[in-house]
């Protein structure tokens, strides 16, 4: 992030009111928007994919060409405009991919039920789905507090892509998508997540940073690893709480 972007996001945060703990934000893996990468050749979006120089293009690309989008009854043109204004052409983008030894349908179905996501994303307390497209997210913040936001499903093509994004007056503007693709010859399914967001400065920014950890890429990496573990092994491997010869005063390695 450049100084510039910090400045511009600060401005938008002030307008939205930083003191409100209710925010729209997205942790590694949740946010989002969509269809950042075209799942199949020939898709109208491919030209925009992630090679687009900035979020502006990403948002424009997705909203402008997604057939599922208008079916959701939102006005993509206005939203794209707003979002891109707030973001400028900067922001943080993280991407990660994982291969999972399960049929595409199972993986899609698990992710599509957002209430499952707290099982794989440790920074989430809960996700509740309010109607077909809107959901409410509660994430853990320091000192037992929470950060909450509303998100909207903006693209959903079964076994291909799920995309969602923060609602327009979010303090943290974010976008992202998860795409599913059957891998070659018995290699399972490739799951790819791309997330873009512009965290605000100030207190809220610090909380966001805390939730994301020092490294948003690592957080996304963890989330997808957990997704894979749950889907393949049915549980997440752990040593937490196991016996050791360390006294309670000794630091336990995670």
């Amino acid at each position: 992030m450049t100084t510039n972007s910090t400045e511009s996001t600060k401005a938008s945060v002030n307008i939205a009111g930083t003191e409100r703990w209710v925010t729209a934000f997205v942790g590694g893996g949740l946010a989002t928007y969509g269809l950042l990468r075209s799942p199949a050749p020939g898709n109208a979006l491919s030209g925009y994919a992630m090679t687009a120089a900035g979020l502006y293009l990403i948002f424009r690309g997705a909203t402008g060409h997604c057939p599922a989008y208008s079916a959701l009854g939102v006005n993509p043109a206005i939203e794209a405009e707003e979002t891109s204004q707030k973001l400028g052409d900067v922001g943080i983008k993280v991407t990660h991919a994982v291969s999972i030894q399960k049929p595409i349908g199972e993986l899609y179905a698990y992710w599509r039920d957002f209430t499952n996501l707290p099982h794989i994303m440790d920074h989430l307390n809960s996700v509740t789905v309010q109607d077909g497209t809107k959901s409410h997210w509660v994430a853990k913040a320091p000192l037992g507090r929470t950060v909450e936001w509303d998100a909207e499903l903006i693209n959903d093509e079964p076994n291909k892509v799920i995309a969602w994004k923060s609602l327009p007056d979010a303090d943290v503007i974010n976008a992202g998508a998860v795409t599913f693709k059957t891998a070659t010859q018995g290699r399972g399914t490739e799951v790819r997540v791309e997330i873009s967001y512009a965290p605000p400065a100030g207190k809220l920014g610090a909380i966001i940073a805390h939730i994301l950890g020092e490294d948003p890429k690592k957080q996304l990496d963890d989330d997808l690893r957990h997704f894979k573990q749950m889907m393949e092994a049915g549980e997440r491997p752990t040593t937490e709480g196991q016996a050791s010869g360390r006294g309670p005063d000794k630091d336990q390695v995670k």
């Binding site: 030894q101 963890d222 690893r225 894979k228 573990q229 092994a233 049915g234 040593t239």
Partner: peptide, 26 residues
Amino acid sequence: GIACGNCYYCQHDQWALCDNSNPNAL
């Protein structure tokens, strides 16, 4: 070696390469 039995490596008898049994994979 601890292995999940379900990942690509386990299913191909490469148990020591299991994707899902190392909590410190990172």
